[in-house]
Structure formats: structure tokens, C-alpha cells
Nucleic acid binder design. Sequence first.
RNA 1: GGAGGGGUUCCCGAGUGGUCAAAGGGAUCAGACUGUAAAUCUGACGCGUAAGCUUCGGUGGUUCAAAUCCACCCCCCUCCGCCA
Length: 423
Amino acid sequence: MTNKHLIEDLSQRSLLQQASAQEELVEHLGEQCRTVYCGFDPTADSLHIGSLVPLLALKRFQLAGHRPIALAGGATGMVGDPSFKSKERKLNSAEVTAEWTAKIRQQLERFIDFDCGENSAIVLNNLDWTENVGILDFLRDIGKHFSVNAMIQKESVKQRIEREGEGISYTEFSYMILQAYDFAKLNQMHDCTLQIGGSDQWGNITAGIDLTRRLNQQQVYGLTLPLVTKADGGKFGKTEEGTIWLDPARTSVYAFYQFWINTADADVYTFLRYFTFLSPAEIEAIEEADKAARGRPEAQGILAREVTRLVHGEEGLAAAQRISDALFSGDISSLTEEDFGQLKQDGMPSSLLEGETLVEALVQTELASSNKMAREFIGNGAVSVNGEKVSDPAVCLDWNQAFFGKFFLLKRGKKLFHLGYRE
RNA sequence: GGAGGGGUUCCCGAGUGGUCAAAGGGAUCAGACUGUAAAUCUGACGCGUAAGCUUCGGUGGUUCAAAUCCACCCCCCUCCGCCA
């Protein structure tokens, strides 16, 4: 029932960064339904697209017949993972962490199947088995198994230990132990035998493997996925507007869809492998076809559709496409009054206009950062109102010209739109 | 504790009394080209329609005039000593 080619598939997708005892692991996974876990710490009230790789990996394991456990880090989130972080981070209050954990948990639940027989998913919160552990028990029963000598050798904390002027608190240094304890505990309670995570988690994962062996006399495994990077060296998952979140309240479905549409050619096939369930063969076919066409590639559109559907569902995708089509086809005049209302609903950036002039409107909608910039954009021919290019910086907005008397579609540059309206 | 180096506009980094809103590079943004690409070229890149205003770690001071000089303070780095 389990798919023996899972690891091979991951490898073809370049999703295998590190694995412990890989051959043994392949055999282990091939034998029967195994339980695999991945943790997500509540560092915000939403996951962002960086978490998508491990999250989808859990799903890949489920599709291959294994049982996924998505772990919300209600406990680990209280402490803060120092792995490869250059600075000590400030702690959030227990209330905030609890609130965020609940939200993360809800998001996790949408990605995996809870009703598919023996490999139905489980979502857990590690606070459940850590909050009542006494400090003395913890030090004696768990701490005893850790060698500080080994802990400080881990690459993930090395720079914090060696770097002058920084340093690491005992709190963050203990993170590894806490995460290791999760693994051992999940092994005990749910027969979990594999932990996956981003490659920055390798140190924590191996710590868990060691602890489980010592505590439970069980051999368990670890596997890491690559951290997503862009070919041009830029940070993945950020735009000038900030992080791309999974929560549509933080990143609209439209902005989400556009993020993927704008993927560079140099990255798009890699991202198809990372972020979709299209088979490597299909992706290769897309790449071949794009190459042969020598025009606009299909890949970005496919990527955007697949990922948007995964994260925001069929409806979210439809909304994102509706907005994108209206804006980029240039055929705005065909939109009805309801359509405009819908654009707002669907996450089209919009705001109530109060000023008189176009310059004021641009600043108010944040399409321009200052009057000066607004004037420059207008002068450059970078601004259009309701599809008409405007080049006179002095123009006022005439509401008689507005769509349905209340909507102005403002555009700055080639792909930045904003809906200005009045009540 | 001693000796030295340094903190400049988003980042790197020049600038040591006026010609400095501050070289150069990167990032970013706009225009052309295009595929809502890439590369390239052009332009912008503190705020202000402008006169002008506010910036060069902080606070005071010298001066007609300071990022540039002086005093004190804060922070970072390197080396030596101390702890051993």
C-alpha cells in the first residue's frame, strides 16, 4: 500500500537535502505505513510560503501511504529556535504564543487528510506533553542524555557560540532538547519513526534521533528538505510588500497568485517541483514545451494555479484569476458594478479616496511614497486611471468619470494596481 | 585596565570647515524593449510646486559657515594586560 518510490520522487524533485541512514530509511518506509512528523513553530499568527515545502512534504508522505503528524509548536514556540539565527530573539508572551499556535494549527489542518483510513493525519501541540514536566524530572530524565560537548558542536548554534558580541541564552540553547523530546515522545505515543523539516532543522532532528534511541531504544530516522533559494540570490518569499503569508487576511489571494506568476524563469521549474504535486515527468514536459515555444512560458501560470489552488482552494484561485484577468487583459470596462465590489472582496488592494487630486490619491493608496514621487510617476507616464494614461501631474479626480460614480482603478508601473473608491 | 580603529542617506562605502542632500557601487522604483520575464539602455532614488527645510551614533560647544573642529556620552571592532 505504501509507495516505494517516495524517496526517489523526493530526490527527483531535489527535495532531499539530508537523510539519516538513507538506504535503511527507504527500506523502513517501503515495509509498511509509517508515522512521520514535522513541527511548525508559532513565530507569527500565520505560516508563510517558506513553510510550504515541509508542509507539502508531509502531504507527499501521506499520499505515499504514510501517516503524517503536523505538530504545532506551542511549547517550542515559547523558547525560540536558535538554529542559524544570528541573534537572540525576543520572547512572546504565553498568551500570544497560545493564540498563534491555535491559528497555525488551523492552517495545518487544511493541508492534510484526516479521513483516509490508517494513514489519517494527526495534528498535535507539543505543549500538551511538555507543560507539566517538572524541571527536576526534565533535567534528570532528559537532560542526562545530552552532552553539552556534542550540543555546542552543532553547526546550527556554532556561530552564536563563537561569535563575539552575540551569544546564546540558556533558553535558546535548550531548544534542541525540547525538540528532541518531542520526537522521542511522538515515537512513544504514536510510533512515529521519522521527522522531517527544513535543512536548518538537521541538528535538532539528529538530537531527537539520539534521544529516542537512548530513551526508547528505538531506531528512528530524519530527513531534511532544502531551504528555498532564488537563482538571483534574493530572499525567497519576500516582495517589497513583505512576506507572502498563507493567511488570506495577510496576503490576499490575488497578491498570492501574482507572487507565483512573477516567478523568474530561472526558478520556475524548480518551484514546480518543490510546490506542486505534478510529477517530475510532467514538469519536464512543461519545460520542454516552453523551451520549444520560445515565447511566453506556461510554467509560471501553471505554478500559480497549482499553488493557489492548494492553499486557497478552487474558489480562491477563481477569485485571483478573475482579478488578474480583469487587470491585465486591460478590459476593465467590461466589469460590472458587482464585479468591482467583488474585486474588493477578493483581495484587490483598495482604499477610500479622500483627496481631490490624482497626486493625493497616489500617496493615499501608497502607490507613491510622497507627493514628489507621485508627480514623478505621472510625469514618467507610469500612471493610469481607469485604463487611461495620465501625464499631467495637476489633474484632479473627476468622480463623474469614475466607474459607476465611485470606482477609480489606479495603476502605477506595469503591475501595481489599486482600487480607489468613495462611499 | 591599556593601545588603536570605527559608527555617513535601505545596504556597502567615499567624504576631514564652505563648491555636500553628501562620490561610487548594490538594492529598489519608473520609462524603452519584452512575456505582468531576463539582459540591456535611460531616468529617479530625504521632504517640499518652489523659495527652502530636515539629515551624516547622541548631547552640547567653537565658527559667518560643521558630516567634517572641540567636549562629554552611547555602541561596535582589533590587539595587549588582568582573571590563569
